[in-house]
Design a protein around this nucleic acid. Sequence first.
DNA 1: CTCCAGGGTACAC
DNA 2: GTGTACCATGGA
Length: 330
Amino acid sequence: MEACLGSTSNSNKGTIVIDVPPYFDFEHCLTHLKRGDNDVLVTVHGHRVSKALDVNGVPMILELSSEASHGVEGNNQREPQPQSQLHATVYGLSHHRLASVDWEAAVRTEIDEWFDLQRDLRPFYAFAERDPILAPLAKRYSGLRIIGSSSLYHSLCWAIMGQQITMSFAATLKRRFVQQFGEYIEHDGERFYLFPRPEVVAKLTPEQVMPLQFSRKKAEYLIEVAVQIASGRLSKKQLIALNSFSDAVKQLTAIRGIGAWTANSVLMHCLRNPRAFPLADVGLHNAIKRLLKLEHKPSLAEMEQYGTRWAGWEAYATFYLWRSLDDEWG
DNA sequence: CTCCAGGGTACAC
DNA sequence: GTGTACCATGGA
């Protein structure tokens, strides 16, 4: 398999404008994306973020910016005004004409799912105002949305990779996995990788993944999930069709390597369920402990009470609490 | 050196 | 049904 899919062509591109909903702040989202310094899938330059996409077999690069012009490369420190629109520019490869697919609809959906743009956050902010923990978070990170992924396989893999280890080590594992088994596009002098396709990973053995410093179990989990998705036994469409949060958790946790934490993480980042709540998460515990200046991390029973208290918005509470770990709270 | 990281499994009892 | 060793590695 040739990993390089080709290079982008300047004569094969298109631009669309995206209207954004109330309570959307692109800069807060960019800050979150920049934090994952090791993430090879996403590149942030100044006020613009880029990544590779596959639209029905047609590879392309998506550049998303809050500014109309993309002329400025590198660090542009000028703060853009609060924006009501985003500008998306898409570049195709020289031998894959963009016009052969409905890239515009696909890109709109991709951006919606990436930044959770279909969620009406006005009720969340009204709710958060009255919650002692969420109020300062909602104020500080106003307009930050849950940054996720449209790909079920990507979400599952990222959650599995992140089990138990530090975020920086998890990011290293992901980078190695993507560069070893993913395809890439050359664009603007850089490589933009697509996450490895489940059909590719399904054919691997644990021995091929373990040299990247995955534990044998994690290697087995990634391959088994790939097999399930490649075979069609597991799909995003079918999980959505269940139309039941607990049934989705049940189906996911039936798979080896996926426990309650991983299932809730995926339901939050990919299925976009606002009630997803990985209540056993140590980062969540540490965030609460730090914000409330507690002596000890909250117990499981206390976490269940927080879940009840935040009912309906558990996922946003979790995401904002995770976000708070990157900042000082004096 | 020990303990902890955005956990989960496979055992024991 | 709860308790515990184990996984792989890096940083505090």
